[in-house]
Design a protein around this nucleic acid. Structure first.
Lengths: 210, 210
DNA sequence: TGTTTAGATGAAGGAAGCTTCAGTTTCGGA
DNA sequence: TCCGAAACTGAAGCTTCCTTCATCTAAACA
C-alpha cells in the first residue's frame, strides 16, 4: 500500500453508458473477490482488473488510484450494513426497548455474518487511515438513528440517549468482530446472537426507570 | 506492505552483548514512534532505523523483514495489556462477580487508554493476516484467565463460563476500540469506563442464579 | 453512413522501498 | 595488548507494482 498525501477521491470519469456502469460494478465486485481470496497485501490493481475481465487502464478511468478502489468497495459494503440497521431502527419506533434492540441487533448481526469472509477481509481495509473516515461517518449516522429509535420508545432512559446508543453499538460491533476474527464456526453464531441480545437488553434495562 | 509467503519469523541473530540488547530495544521503540507519527503506510525500515539511531543493516540483523518488525512491536504492546488483565484476574479470585469484573475492566481500560495514540496506531498492524495470529493467541489466553476468574467466584453462572468470558471480553474490546477510533476526548473516558462496567455487570447478573 | 464521443487496451516508465553484503568498528576475554 | 567474535554500516541491486497515455474499438446520433 502506497502512502497517500493527495486527497483520495480525485474526480474521475462518471459512467455514462450502461456498458461502463456494468464495468464499474464488475471492478468493485472483483476487488471484493480478490480481497477475500488473497488479502489486501497481495491485491494489485492489475489482478483486480484481470478478475473483472477488463484492462488496468479501464480501472484507472473510474478510480484515480488503488486506495480509492478499496475505499469504494468498503463504502459499498458498510453502507449496506448501515442501511439495514437504519431501516430496522425506523421500523421499530415506539416499541418496547428490548424488542427494538433485539430487532436492531438482529439486523446488524445478520448483515455482518451473512458473508463472514467478506466482513473479515474488509477489516484490513477499514484500518487504513482513509478507511477509518468512512467507518466513522457511517457509525455516526448509525448511532444517530439508534438514538432516535431509543427516544421513540415509551420507556424512558435515565442516561443521555447518545451515550446509550454509543454503548450499544460498541458492544454489537465488539461481539461481531470478535466472532469473525476468532473464526467461530457458523453453528455457534446463533447462541452468540442470543447472548448479544441478552447483553444489550440487560444493559438498557439497568437504565430504565421502573 | 509486501506480501508474505514464507514463514514470518525466520530465526535471526539473538542479542548477546548488552549493546545489541539495547539496539533491539531502540528499534522496537522507534518502530512504535514512527508508527504513531506517520502510520503504517509510510513506515519504512530505513526510517525506523534512522529514528533508532542505527543503520538499516543493523535492523535486519535482528528482524528478518519488515512484517516481523511490526509483529514484534505489536506483540510487545499486547502482551503488556494481556499481562495486566491476567494479573488482575488472579488478584481478584474468589471475589463477588461484579467487583471482579469491575477490576478487570478497569485494568483493561487503563492499559488501552493510557496511550491512545499507540493503541490506535497498532490497530492497523493487528489487521494484517500475520498480526491477527498474535492478537488471537493473546485473546485466547485472556479469555482463559477470565474464565478461571469467573469460576472462582462464590456466585455461580448459569451459562458456560467460556461463553460468558467471550462476551465480556468482546464487549470490553468493542467499547474501548470504538472510543479510540471515534477519538472521544480523554475527559469523557471516565464516564464511558463507568458505563462499560455497568454493561458488563448487568450482563453477568442476568446469568446469576439468585 | 459518417462523425463524434465514450469506453477500452496494455506495454512501458518510473518511483519506492525492501533487503543484502562486503567492509569497518567495537567489545570482551586471554 | 592482541585477537576473534559480535555488532554495525549504508550504498546499491532488485523486485514489485502503480499509473500513464498513445492507440484502438464500440456506441450514439444526425
Amino acid at each position: 500500500m502506497p502512502a497517500l498525501k493527495a486527497p483520495i477521491e480525485k474526480p474521475r470519469k462518471q459512467p455514462v453508458q450502461a456498458r461502463s456502469t456494468a464495468t464499474v460494478e464488475a471492478i468493485l465486485e472483483a476487488t471484493l473477490q480478490v480481497l477475500v481470496a488473497i488479502g489486501k497485501e497481495r491485491l494489485t490493481t492489475t489482478r483486480v482488473a484481470h478478475r473483472a475481465g477488463v484492462s488496468v487502464g479501464t480501472l484507472y478511468q473510474y478510480f484515480p488510484n488503488k486506495p480509492s478502489l478499496l475505499q469504494a468497495t468498503l463504502r459499498r459494503h458498510l453502507t449496506a450494513v448501515s442501511d439495514a440497521v437504519e431501516a430496522t431502527c425506523a421500523a421499530h419506533r415506539g416499541q418496547p426497548l428490548c424488542d427494538m434492540i433485539a430487532a436492531i441487533a438482529d439486523a446488524f448481526f445478520r448483515a455482518k455474518m451473512t458473508h463472514p469472509a467478506i466482513s473479515l477481509a474488509l477489516y484490513s481495509v477499514s484500518s487504513d487511515v482513509d478507511g477509518l473516515r468512512i467507518v466513522e461517518d457511517l457509525r455516526i449516522r448509525n448511532t444517530q438513528a439508534l438514538s432516535e429509535a431509543l427516544a421513540s420508545s415509551p420507556e424512558k432512559l435515565n442516561i443521555p440517549l447518545d451515550l446509550a446508543a454509543f454503548m450499544l453499538q460498541a458492544a454489537m460491533t465488539g461481539v461481531s468482530r470478535r466472532l469473525l476474527e476468532a473464526k467461530v464456526p457458523t453453528q455457534d453464531h446463533e447462541a452468540l446472537r442470543t447472548e448479544l441480545i441478552t447483553l444489550l437488553c440487560a444493559y438498557i434495562q439497568t437504565h430504565t426507570n421502573a
